[in-house]
Design a protein around this nucleic acid. Structure first.
Lengths: 197, 197
DNA sequence: AGCGCCAGACTAACCAGTCGGTATGTTGTG
DNA sequence: CACAACATACCGACTGGTTAGTCTGGCGCT
């Protein structure tokens, strides 16, 4: 058997990614040395550079994972067979829950984008844009049907809501009084209330 | 005259602060070397370390300035003689306008807090908390008077709104279709609409 | 004749990435 | 089945470069 695993059963690339995610979230990308990462993962630099092209690649992998998951979940809610209010509420709440469930990824996502190389940065921005547009389409659909107010441009509404999602990693504490689902319901409710005609 | 100014008439400490602010916003704190800062300010390291104790101090100064200004402005709106809806709307819109007017400061503020030394970080958090509480008090006042919905805890509403302010530096572009005031009016409107009973 | 203000060389530390090397497999061949 | 040829997975010392911060000294003003 090739030694892709060590004493622990998790494959080395995943261990590296997990260690990097945690450390990037805790200390930031620049403050985290690859030496720290490999030590946390229980390997050495040779292993890291065997699987990843650069430290930058590690960061990119984190982004790619988050983006893919969130896009899939949004699509599922948006394509569901339900009134647009329910679909929007579901999607808006879901992104909050999954963000809280992966607060480390969220911290990195919103704080470390500018550490990506230019081409990777561009790629991530493009995928984020697709996500944004899918969400906006939901709001525009409701506005056309007359169930949402048209007082505010849909683009701005999307940014308003994602601002709060973005902000979660700043203030949400798992040991606080609210469960992730409660926070999600409240934030989705605020969005829907703001959109009442 | 002591040479606190150079060819240009601006005092050296302010030139250093301005250069640091711009560079921190453009490249991030870690990616900006003190060498770059002093070159941008037209001085050398001797000057920087004459006026500031550390690179960290420079960052702290940026925070202190922003915090002081925003607290003053919030207090002015909150203490005004007007119905609570108007005071909240005014404060909510004002923080958006002043944030857009100082997008560099905002980028730094929300992206570089964790680069502060622990004690400075704690100090900044304490001042942010005061700001948050003043804002929350406005919402609670409206809720007690029955003009705002009590469906959502006031704390969460504050975080919801500041999420969007926080997020401005990510998406707002001065050459976009909306003026700062228009964005501010829309965002304040969304807040007030969400709070309708 | 002193002092605020600043220049610029210097230091000690750190860091991303490289590279030669080793160990453990797998595949091909007679 | 044996053995060579190759491939994969990883180690860890090393390199070239960068960095925050220090220190000595000097200029110009009072």
């Amino acid at each position: 058997m090739p030694r892709t695993t060590d004493g622990d059963g998790t494959p080395v690339p995943q261990r590296l990614l997990a260690a990097a995610t945690r450390l990037f979230a805790e200390q930031g990308y620049d403050r985290t040395s690859v030496q720290e990462i490999v030590e946390a993962a229980g390997v050495t630099k040779g292993a890291l550079y065997h699987y990843f092209g650069s430290k930058d690649d590690l960061l990119h992998e984190v982004y790619a994972r988050v983006l893919r998951i969130q896009q899939e979940r949004l699509d599922a809610f948006a394509d569901a067979d339900a009134p647009v209010e329910e679909r929007l509420r579901g999607a808006a709440a879901d992104v909050v829950v999954t963000t809280i469930d992966n607060l480390d990824d969220a911290s990195i996502f919103f704080r470390s984008m500018h550490h990506l190389s230019p081409e990777k940065h561009k790629q991530v921005r493009a995928e984020r844009r697709r996500y944004h547009e899918r969400f906006r389409a939901l709001i525009e659909e409701g506005q056309k049907k007359g169930v949402f107010s048209t007082a505010t441009p849909a683009d701005l509404v999307v940014d308003y809501h994602f601002g709060s999602v973005h902000h979660l990693s700043t203030w949400y504490r798992p040991d606080g009084p609210l469960t992730p689902q409660q926070v999600a319901d409240h934030l989705a409710d605020l969005l829907l209330r703001a959109l009442r005609p």
